[in-house]
Design a protein around this nucleic acid. Structure first.
Lengths: 226, 226
DNA sequence: GCGGACGTCAAGGGAGGGTTAAGGCCCAGC
DNA sequence: GCTGGGCCTTAACCCTCCCTTGACGTCCGC
């Protein structure tokens, strides 16, 4: 399904992950050091890099920007430390996702697919338009029927996510994963509240929604009313 | 005169070149391997890289594109082989110049200065105009409604970056990467302070910005008020 | 009717931005 | 070599805004 570059110094983990991912249909190139990783990234041109943080020759946090610079490729961090601050810092520094060891092959595979899906999508940075709603990630402007709407960061991220998947029901689990992105995440309640605020700012009510339709037991769906 | 990164595995050559170049007014960082070179390129931010082709851990030809990708910096190849084809290939691959060993410090210095002079010039870009704001990279002059505004180097670089991406939200991360060029250094706070100073010099306030709009949680946006 | 899910409100705590000032570095001028 | 000024960074403070959480009401489905 995809070409993975696995960077992991522990040979046992490396081989078991290689096998597991291969079984799941990926092509896996595995290396054990940062230097090899850089070389392989250029030579192999992987679709995703799975990067272990505890490398012998160079700290993972250090190598990430280099990797990022050498090839434009999504990076999934694999780490043994479940340290919130560190993870947030890495995501800020440009990591696309992370998994905390020990993790299952299934989970890792899910992350890989999620990342691939995310970058496979338009991502053209152009404004997303749904009905009378226009959301521009570059300028961070939102317009409703030509009228400027001012949103908070979370509201904006939420609306953008829903708009990118317009017509589709997005589960609260997905929403929390994409918008909140924190290890323990928020609760469903938080999502509800933000949806409520969005509705107010979009001039609609939960009873008579124009764009934001709740789907009981599942999640939220942004609908083109036209 | 310039910050040089010397990549050379032979310790004797390394120390003699370091001394010679230092005497000629350069600041020299020297390393003996490709991996160190990548790290130092990011950390030090040299003006020129002097790259030996015969490195122990990674072929010089291999490391060049990586180096190129990590930092935008001219590279001068130093090689013992006087092989035309190889040299042509390297120049094609993006090397800026080369010297064949044995060479004199004087000769190397001349190459360094030539490369610096060459890349120091290009800034052929015309002024960037946004509303009543005009920023000229060539003359480093900034005018606001016809009035000259005097900026410090960082202020100028920041304003230019924002103007080049006028209308677009530029993240603090991007700003630090573009203006500060120090992958690990520099905090968001520093950006805030410079924005504050820019606002003052542009005669606007954070509450009622005319050009410089902060976007909470993301970064800054330079807007054409017209 | 009951439990669970959703909607809304309000409170509080926290994070981020604005601003000022202090300290360090570098260079120019003496 | 010394000194002064310009510039940048960082710390500290304040303030605003935003997010979270708990409470409570409502509606749906069983």
């Amino acid at each position: 399904m995809a070409v993975l570059l696995l960077v992991e110094d522990d040979a046992a983990i490396r081989s078991s992950l290689t096998r597991a991912m291969t079984e799941r249909g990926h092509v896996v190139h595995s290396v054990g050091s940062a230097l090899e990783a850089l070389r392989a990234a250029v030579d192999v041109g992987p679709d995703v890099v799975l990067l272990d943080l505890g490398l012998p020759d160079l700290d993972g946090a250090r190598i990430m920007p280099m990797l990022r610079a050498v090839v434009s490729v999504p990076i999934i961090i694999t780490t043994a430390r479940d340290d919130d601050d560190e993870i947030v810092a890495l995501l800020d520094a440009g990591a696309d996702d992370y998994v905390v060891k020990p993790f299952s092959a299934k989970q890792l595979d899910a992350r890989v697919r999620a990342v691939l899906r995310r970058i496979g999508e338009p991502e053209a940075d152009g404004p997303v338009v749904v009905g009378g709603l226009s959301i521009d990630p570059r300028t961070r402007e939102v317009q409703l029927d030509g009228q400027q709407v001012s949103l908070t960061p979370k509201e904006f991220a939420l609306l953008l996510l829903l708009a990118q998947r317009a017509g589709e029901v997005v589960s609260k689990r997905d929403i929390l994963a994409e918008v909140w992105r924190l290890p323990q995440g928020g609760s469903d309640k938080t999502v509800d509240v933000h949806v409520s605020w969005l509705r107010r700012k979009l001039g609609e009510s939960a009873d008579e929604p124009r764009y934001l339709h709740s789907v009981r037991g599942v999640g939220v769906r942004l609908v083109d009313p036209g």
